[in-house]
């Protein structure tokens, strides 16, 4: 149960290129048949240190557990295939805005997106009359923007689209973590699925595409796109795009795929390394687990 770290790309303030480290661990919940912990740490901030104790940006931390395959409840109708159910829940303390204990519309939305992504990757007919539950708990969520923007403190001009950008990073993390947990649970999948995000950032000099956007660092995020990507088949199982992409939809998807491929490197090495440890063999292919 070691973590793999790899280098992803995260551009801050449009031109500055920075690195994000991804942490992925599997097998943290002994009672679940598969589990994974995913963390996206943006590293040291590029913005000047402020007097405020509130961090200028956030990171992403989430856990995913997979329960099953187990027999369907008696009330369920007959199914010749594996029935997948997903549940994404933010911890009450996950973001600046406190969440209730009941799932709200955004969390249900994320669950639906995660389900559609995983549905395309599992081989459901290998497990007839069975069900599997994928439960994601978001411990720390990416903020939807810089906190001060909410109160119009930091800038003279209020941001026009203070939207739900943080959800996109959360979804990409959910997809990657769920893939690791499903593999840990031994559920047949056609491929590993990894999530990636790209965003379109507008600045005075025009628009540019960033991988893995950090909503609190970009002044004006106009569009975003999340993909669930199967690298060995070069297929997409999930696309979620929002905002005004200014006819750059294809570019946005291409960049989101690039981000997903970066995440897949971590995913594949962690999954194989963990399995090798279970077999009691020292991993031989750890050269792709770069440390940041």
């Amino acid at each position: 149960m070691r973590s793999g770290r790899s280098v992803g790309l995260r551009t801050a303030h449009v031109r500055q290129l920075k690195l994000t480290s991804t942490v992925l661990k599997t097998g943290l919940t002994p009672s679940a048949s598969g589990s994974a912990y995913f963390e996206l740490d943006p590293g040291p901030s590029s913005s000047p240190p402020s007097a405020s104790t509130i961090p200028s940006r956030s990171s992403l931390k989430l856990t995913c557990t997979v329960h099953g395959p187990k027999p369907l409840p008696r009330s369920a109708p007959f199914s010749p295939q594996l029935i997948l159910s997903t549940n994404v829940k933010y911890a009450p303390f996950a973001a600046r805005q406190r969440r209730g204990f009941i799932r709200d519309a955004r969390e249900k939305d994320l669950s639906a997106h995660l389900e559609s992504a995983l549905r395309g990757v599992i081989i459901a007919d290998r497990w007839p009359k069975s069900g599997v539950d994928v439960v994601v708990t978001v411990l720390e969520a990416e903020e939807d923007g810089w906190w001060a923007d909410e109160f119009d403190l930091g800038q003279s001009t209020r941001r026009t689209n203070f939207g739900e950008w943080g959800m996109m990073t959360v979804l990409a993390g959910c997809i990657t973590a769920a893939s690791a947990a499903l593999v840990e649970a031994g559920i047949d999948c056609v491929d590993l699925v990894s999530g990636g995000v790209a965003g379109l950032v507008r600045s005075k000099s025009g628009t540019s595409v960033v991988l893995d956007p950090c909503p609190s660092e970009h002044e004006d995020l106009v569009a975003g796109c999340v993909v669930g990507h199967l690298a060995s088949r070069d297929e997409l199982v999930e696309i979620w795009s929002r905002g005004d992409n200014e006819d750059q939809a294809i570019t946005l998807v291409d960049h989101a795929v690039d981000a997903a491929i970066a995440a897949r490197g971590v995913l594949a090495s962690v999954v194989k390394e963990t399995t090798a440890l279970r077999f009691g063999v020292a991993s031989t292919d750890s050269e792709d687990t770069a440390m940041t």
């Binding site: 593999v183 047949d188 999948c189 060995s232 194989k272 399995t275």
Partner: peptide, 26 residues
């Protein structure tokens, strides 16, 4: 040899078939 889902194991032919933990892409 350790493999992960999505890794190629071989070419399906009359002499090679997929068993448990493997599948054939038609």
């Amino acid at each position: 040899m350790m493999v992960a889902p999505g890794e190629v194991l071989g070419k399906a032919s009359p002499l090679l078939a997929a068993g448990r933990g493997a599948y054939v892409n038609p």
